[in-house]
Write a protein that binds this DNA or RNA. Structure first.
Ligand SMILES: [Mn+2]
Ligand SMILES: [Mn+2]
Ligand SMILES: [Mn+2]
Ligand SMILES: [Mn+2]
Lengths: 215, 215
DNA sequence: TCACAAAGTTAGACATATCTAACAAATAAA
DNA sequence: TTTATTTGTTAGATATGTCTAACTTTGTGA
């Protein structure tokens, strides 16, 4: 079983692997706020444990066992977020940080009970899928708001980034999962998008549109 | 803020200090399953942090700050136990082990919310008091079942030891907090006690009577 | 193709938490 | 009051996770 620190590395590797096929040591270091030698050393240790395929100067790759470990941690993370939100009444902007800690609890029954009390949810409060106990993700094919064209009407389904700063921004704009947006126009200069919803009409910057998944 | 490991030492020191005024390095080691040099070294480190008063060859003593830290961890532990039992539906024999992990969660709001959802409880599922946020324990003056005399009628108020093995024993005997026992007789040879409750009549060994607090 | 910047690795150090073996102090027994 | 036992400390080692400084590869741009 990985230590808490190794769990964070495995999770980071999994997330980086989603964004981009080739995971660099530098990116891993950046993601976790550690130096390159630290990330490199850890990659070797994870290889020794059989969770990573490490070769000098080559991109990092999670092994199948590593992916399973990562999925288990992500499952705990997302169940925790759902539990904090649905059972304990925390706002969706507050749950990620607490889940960063709860995901490391070893007790399996603790999370099994959460799952049960929540009625076996399939997504977390930010719309991300909760993998099953075997580590399988049911991948939804949502697209980025930034990839939609003028005239489309889309529903917000998930967030790419669950930082509380971003969610507080959405709260201020009264945007949540399920909000239906009409794309009125797209500014060619900075890729910002003018949308209407709930009778409001506002401009969303590219940085915002790149963080919203819609259908 | 103490590391998770130091938190366990502080909690152990607090508990040992309740049982007995003089805390020895050996007892600390035994409590945590570490060697004497390890316990001794850690005592020095805790002294350096201002949480313990350490003097060579003298009994260990928690400082006021150390007591406050310990109380905070015990508060988190007992709130967790109450939450696991009342909100998540776990049996009182299962909660201690999970609380050993949950007590190290840093987020204060997590525990504040537990407290609120539970209606600000004052005891945990084993009858032990939950200290307030200032670290004050409201000490109840219960006595050991082993200290009662023939003919007395007492109510079970708390357990000295919350190991799941002991609680499973109590479950099998249908003994819980609130159960009223009548002390029928005391065996002088082995200090076992014959009690009656709920129409049953059984003998409780000294080891059991030393673990039950009654009023 | 060669030079240079970016990315990655090695070397050496430090902090934390642990151990065993050996020694010293305190306490209990003779 | 010696001796013996228990208790506690030192010394030296190991494992984990981190750093900076220096060096080596890799890949790009001239
Ligand atoms: Mn999250
Ligand atoms: Mn984490
Ligand atoms: Mn407990
Ligand atoms: Mn603990």
């Amino acid at each position: 079983m990985p230590t808490e620190i190794k769990e964070n590395y495995l999770k980071a590797l999994f997330h980086l692997g989603q964004k981009c096929e080739k995971i660099s040591v530098s990116d891993l270091g950046k993601e976790l706020g550690v130096s390159k030698p630290t990330a490199s050393d850890m990659a070797k240790k994870l290889d020794a444990k059989g969770w990573v395929h490490y070769q000098k100067y080559k991109p990092l790759r999670l092994s199948d066992e590593g992916k399973k470990q990562a999925a288990s941690i992500i499952r705990k993370h997302r169940l925790s977020e759902m539990f904090l939100s649905q059972i304990m009444g925390f706002g969706w902007e507050a749950v990620h940080e607490m889940a960063e800690e709860l995901e490391h609890i070893k007790s399996e029954t603790f999370f099994d009970r959460m799952d049960e009390l929540l009625g076996f949810p399939t997504t977390d409060p930010h719309g991300s899928p909760i993998p099953d106990k075997q580590g399988c993700f049911k991948d939804s094919n949502y697209s980025l708001l930034s990839a939609t064209s003028k005239g489309e009407e889309v529903t917000i389904k998930a967030l790419i980034n669950s930082s509380s700063e971003f969610i507080v921004f959405l709260n201020n704009k009264k945007i949540k999962l399920g909000t239906v947006l009409k794309v009125l126009s797209k500014e060619p200069f900075d890729q910002s998008i003018l949308v209407s919803y709930n009778g409001k009409k506002i401009t969303l910057s590219q940085s915002v549109c790149n963080r919203l998944l819609v259908e």
